[in-house]
Design a protein around this nucleic acid. Sequence first.
RNA 1: GGGCGUAUAGCUCAGUUGGUUAGAGCGCACGCUUCACACGCGUGAGGUCACAGGUUCGAGUCCUGUUACGCCCACCA
Length: 838
Amino acid sequence: MTASNVPDKPTLDGVELKWDAVWEERGTYRFDRTAERADVYSLDTPPPTVSGSLHVGHMFSYTHEDLIARYHRMRGKSVFYPMGWDDNGLPTERRVQNYYGVRCDPAQPYDPSYEPPEKPGKDQVQISRQNFVELCHRLTAEDEKAFEDTFRRLGLSVDWQHTYATIDDRSRRVAQVAFLRNLARGEAYAAEAPTLWDVDFRTAVAQAELEDRELPGAYHRVMFEDIAIETTRPELLPACVALVAHPDDERYKPRFGTTVKTPLFGVEVPVKAHPLADPDKGSGIAMICTFGDLTDVIWWRELNLPVRSVIGRDGRILATPPADVPADGAYAELAGKTVKQAQRRIVELLIESGDLVGEPKPITHPVKFYEKGDRPLEVVTSRQWYIRNGGRDAELNAQMLKRGSELDWHPPYMKARYDNWVGGLNGDWLISRQRFFGVPFPLWYPLDGDGEPSYDKPLIPAETRLPIDPSSDLPDGYTADQRDQAGGFTADPDVMDTWATSSLSPQIAGGWLDDEDLFGRVFPYDVRPQAHEIIRTWLFATVVRAHLEHDSLPWTDTMISGWVLDPDRKKMSKSKGNAMTPIGLLEQYGSDAIRYWSASARVGTDTAFDEGQMKVGRRLAVKLLNASKFALGFPDAGPGDVTEPIDRALLSRLADVVDEATTAYDGYDPARALERSEAFFWTFCDDYIELVKNRAYSDTAEAASASRALRLALDVLLRLFAPVLPFATEEVWSWWHEDSVHRQSWPSAADLRAAGGRDVDVAVLEVAGEVLGQVRKAKSNAKSSMRTPVDKLVVRDTAERIALMRLASVDIVNAGVISELVLEEGEPDVVVTLAPPE
RNA sequence: GGGCGUAUAGCUCAGUUGGUUAGAGCGCACGCUUCACACGCGUGAGGUCACAGGUUCGAGUCCUGUUACGCCCACCA
C-alpha cells in the first residue's frame, strides 16, 4: 500500500469522462445474474420520456435512486439497475411533427425512400403511418443516445447492458402478451361508452391524464317554456335530453314526470329528479346534454336517458342533427361550426327568439383538459379498451388499497396519495388511444357480409407470434386481399396508451416471458423510485398489472422523490437558459457537485434549485482530494496498532458515524447519511489533521499511531462518500489501490472499533479541538497569523477535562505552536500569551 | 369541498423517542500568502423556532385551533 500515485496537483477536471470509460471497460456496475434472489437488489428504474432533453429535475431524482443502488452494491448485493426509455406515445409524435414538419395520414401510401425536409416547412407534410413511425424511431434513437451520455456523465451506476425502450420489440411483445392475458381472464374489455376526448389529438384520454384549468365562461339563463335554467354551454341545447332538479326541491317537485320543450329546437324533454342536482347552483335545475361533462354522463346513465350527440370528434357541430332534432332552422346555423363559433351564434339566436334572459354572467370555472392538450375535452361516445383497476368494482378496489398498504412507502405519507386516488376512481382504466406511434392492439375482427366488424368474435394471435402489427400482419387463415373486405377481416385500429406499456416496466426490464431465469432473480423488485406526481399513473398502473398477472406487488418498497423548485417556490420549468441545462451544470460544477446538491435533499421533499449547494458540493469534492493527498503523504507505518487516545477517539467517533449512515441508508434517507459523514469529515480536516500532523511527520511510535488512524479514517470516509461523490472518491482510491472503490464493501463500524476505536473517551478529541479554538481565537483577535508562537498557554478547567487535555497535550502544543502549556484544575479560564511581534 | 405536506438566522436546510445556552453551510464582517487545499484557512455578528391557546417540572419537538404557501383529489349545470 504505497502512495506513489498521488498527484502533485489533484484535480477534478475530466474525471467524469475518464472514470465512465474505466467503469464501462471493467464492468464495474454489471449485474451478476448468477446471484440468487436473496443476494440481488433490483430497481425498477423510471424510463424518462424521450421527447426532447433531460432537465435538472432528472439529475435530482435519478441521483437519489443511484445513491440507493450504490449503497446496496457496497452492501454486497448484486444490483440490477436497468435503464428504460419511454419513447412511444403522444409526446414523441408531437416532437416528430414539430422537428421534421410532418403529419401522419394513415391514408397515404408508404414511401420506402422518403426523407424528411432539412428544416420543417410552413405546412406539415402528410406522410404514411409507416413513414411516420420510422421517423419516430429515428429521432428517439438520437435522443436516447444523448440521454445516455448525460446519465453516464452524472455517474449513474446503471448496467447499460440492460436497457429497453417502450416501443422496442420486447416491450411490444410484453405489452401485447399481457394485454391478451388480461383479455382472456376478463380483466380487459372493450366498450362503447361516453369518453373524454381531445379534439386536437383526436384520441380518447384516461382519467389519470386529466387536469383542470381555470377558464373564463358565462352563465346563460335560458327559458324552457316557463322554467329557467343556467348553462355555460348553450351550444349544447340541441343535445339536451332532460332537465334535472333535486328530489326535495319544492320549486320543481310538481314538474317531475312532466315534459318541456327545448327553445329553438322544440324537442320534448322530461323533467327529472336526481340527488346530485344542487338547488343552490344557478336556478337549481340543470340542463342535461349528451354530453357536456362527466356529470351529464352520470345523469344520462342513472336516469336511462337517450343520446343526442351534436359534437363530432373534430370538435365541430355534426353536419347531421340527432334523429328528433329538426335539421333546418337553428341547427343548420350551427352545423360545422366549432364549439366557440356555435356558442356565439346560438346566443344570437336565443336573443332573437327571446329565450335568453338578461345578459350572460361572466364567471371563471374549472374545465377539464388533457394534460398535454390545448383545448377543453369533449365527451364523445366511442369504442374503447379498458383494463379493470377497481374503478367499477368494490372488491378489486379493496384489493388495490390492500396492495398499497403492503408496500413500504418512503416517505410514508406519500401513501395517502395512492389511497386518495384509488378510493376516488370513477371508472376502469381506458388504455386505447386513436394514435399511431404506440403498441397496437394485437387483434383483428371478422367482417360480415355487409362489411361490419364482429367485435364479439375477435381474431386473436398466438402468444408466440407477438409482437405483431395487425395493420400489416395477417390473422391466421386469412389472406392479405381479404383485409377490409366484406367477409374478410379488419385490424383493430388503436394503439395502447404509453402507461399501458410502462406499467409493465418490471416485466420488460426483468426478462418476463423470454428469460424467466433472470425474471426469477429480480422480481418482485426491491424498489420503485419515482416522483410523486405520477403515483396515480405509473405507480398505481404498475401495481394493477402485477396484481392481475402475478398476484403480487411489483416491488416491496417505493422511494418518492420531490420536485425541484425555482427559487420562487414554483415547480421548475424546463427551459431556463443554458446555465440550467443538465450538461451546463455538470460542466460548470462537476457531476459530484450536482449529486451532492441532490443528495442533500431528503427523499420526498421538494427542493429549491440552489447553485450555492452545488458550489458547496464542489468544495467538498475538492477538499476530499486535497485532504487525501495530505493524509497519504505521511510515512506509511504499515500494519499495527492505533495507540494514542486522540487517534482512537477519532476512530471511535467514525464508527458511530458509520452506524448512523448505515441506518439512514437502510431507511432510504441518504441525506442524513451524507450530513453525518460530511460533518465528521470537516472536523477531521480542520481539527484532527491540524492536531496530529506534526506528530505524524515525526519519527516516533506515536507517529505510527497517527499515520495508521489517518489512513484508516480516509479509507472509511472514501467508502462513506462513494455513493454521493463517485468520481472524486474513485479518483482518490486509484492513488493507492488497483481496484474500484465502488466494488468495496460498505465500511464496518466493528472493524474501526477493533482497530482501536473503542474503550476511549471520545471527548478527548472535542476537548483538544476546543483548546485549539481558544488559541486560534486569541491569534485572530490579535490579527496575527496562525503560525504566531504562543509563549504561554494556561488552561483551567474541571479535573475531568484537564485529564483529557493531558492525553492530547503534545498535539495541542504542536498545533498551537506553544512554548509552555499549563493545564490546571480550577474555574474554567483560558489565558493565551502570544509571543511579541518581531 | 376532501386529503397530504411545509413554515427554525438575510438565503438553503438539520434539529432522531420533549431535557442545560436552538445547529450547519452559503452570504456578510474582520483577519490570515499556515510547508494538502486562495475552488483555501481562522475568528465573529446574526434567530420571540408562522400565530394563539393547551398538556408538562420543562415544548422548536406533543395536543387543539388559526394563518400563509405548495401539491394531490373532487359530480365544475
